[in-house]
Amino acid sequence: MPTQTKRHAAAIGGTADDVETAFYEALQRGDIEALMACWADDDEVFCVHPGGPRLVGAIAIRAAFEQMFGNGAIHAQPARVRKVESLASAVHNVLERIDVLTHEGPKQAYVLATNVYHKAAQGWRMVAHHASPGTAREPDAHDAAQQTLH
C-alpha cells in the first residue's frame, strides 16, 4: 500500500459510517487513493458493480475504479441507509442516487448497494461492495413499503 494511502487510511478512523462517508466522498472526487484507503487490506475483499463480474482483491477493485474514473468522478449519493451492526461488523444497504450526463442532459439513476465493513487492526474498513441495477426513478414511499416482507 503506498504511503499516502496508508496515511489516509489511518486518518479515516472512527466508525463504519465514517468509512462509508469517506468512500462516497472519494467517488465524488474521483480520488482512487482515498477510495482504496477505505478497503480492508485483505485478499478476499470483493466488489460487484451493476451488471459486472465479481472483482476479488484490491488489485482488481482498484483497476475497475481507475477505469471508471477515466470517465470522470462517480456522482453517487447514498440515501435510505438500512444498517445491521455488531461489535466487529456492519452491513449497510443503501439506495444510491447516481447523477449522469446524457445526450438529453443531466439524468438520475438509482442503484441498490450493500456495503459490508469489518473492524480490523487498522480500524473499520470495507470488505464488500455489491451494487445491483436499480431504476431510472427514485422509489417512492409506497414502493419501499411493498419491499418490506414483515
Score class of each variant (00 low, 15 high):
Glu96Ala: 03
Phe23Gly: 07
Ile61Met: 11
Gln146Gly: 13
Gln28Pro: 02
Val100Asn: 02
Ser89Leu: 04
Ala16Ile: 07
Gln108Asp: 02
Ala144Tyr: 13
Gly123Lys: 13
Gln146Ile: 15
Leu95Asp: 05
Thr135Pro: 03
Met1Cys: 05
Pro133Ala: 13
Gly57Trp: 03
Pro53Met: 01
Arg62Val: 06
Tyr24Trp: 04
Trp39Ala: 07
Ala58Gly: 03
Arg82Leu: 07
Val127Lys: 06
Thr21Cys: 14
Ala60Asp: 01
Val81Phe: 04
Glu104His: 05
His8Thr: 05
Thr102Asp: 01
Gln4Arg: 15
Glu104Trp: 06
Pro139Tyr: 07
Gly13Tyr: 01
Ile74Thr: 04
Ala64Met: 12
Lys119Phe: 14
Asp41Thr: 14
Ala63Asp: 01
His103Ile: 12
Gln67Gly: 12
Arg62Trp: 11
Thr135Phe: 04
Ala79Tyr: 10
Gln77Ile: 07
Thr21Tyr: 15
Gly52Asp: 03
His92Ser: 05
Leu87Ile: 10
Arg137Glu: 08
Leu35Val: 15
Val127Gln: 03
Pro139Ser: 05
Met36Gln: 14
Ser86Asn: 11
Pro133Cys: 12
Met1Asp: 05
Val111Ile: 11
Arg54Met: 09
Glu44Gly: 10
Val84Thr: 15
Ala16His: 08
Pro133Asn: 13
Val111Trp: 10
Val45Ala: 10
Asp43Cys: 08
Thr102Gly: 01
Pro53Val: 02
Glu138Cys: 12
Asn115Phe: 09
Pro106Phe: 01
Val91Ile: 00
Ile59Glu: 04
Leu112Tyr: 04
Val91Tyr: 00
Gly51Ile: 13
Met68Ile: 09
Leu35Ser: 12
Gly51Leu: 13
Val100Trp: 02
Phe65Cys: 13
Cys47Trp: 13
Gly13Phe: 00
Ala11Met: 11
Gly30Pro: 07
Glu104Ala: 06
Asn93Val: 12
Val100Ile: 01
Ala10His: 14
Trp124Met: 10
Ala37Gln: 02
Asp17Trp: 07
Val116Asp: 10
Gln77Cys: 05
Gln77Tyr: 04
Val100Ala: 03
Ala16Thr: 09
His118Thr: 03
Trp124Leu: 10
Phe23Met: 09
His118Ser: 01
Ala120Gln: 03
Tyr110Pro: 15
Glu20Ser: 12
Ala121Pro: 10
Ala109Thr: 14
Phe69Glu: 13
Ala22Thr: 14
Pro106Ile: 02
Ala109Cys: 12
Ala22Pro: 09
Gln108Val: 03
Val19Ser: 01
Ala26Leu: 01
Met126Asn: 14
Ala37Asn: 04
Ala37Ser: 05
Ala113Ile: 11
Pro106Met: 00
Val56His: 02
Gly57Ile: 07
Ala131Pro: 15
Ala109Asp: 13
Asp41Val: 14
His92Lys: 04
Ala90Phe: 00
Ser132Gly: 02
Met1Pro: 06
Val100Arg: 00
Ala10Thr: 14
Arg125Gln: 12
Asp17Asn: 05
Ala26Cys: 02
Ala113Gly: 10
Ser86Ala: 13
Ala16Pro: 10
Asp42Cys: 01
Gln108Glu: 06
Asp99Gly: 13
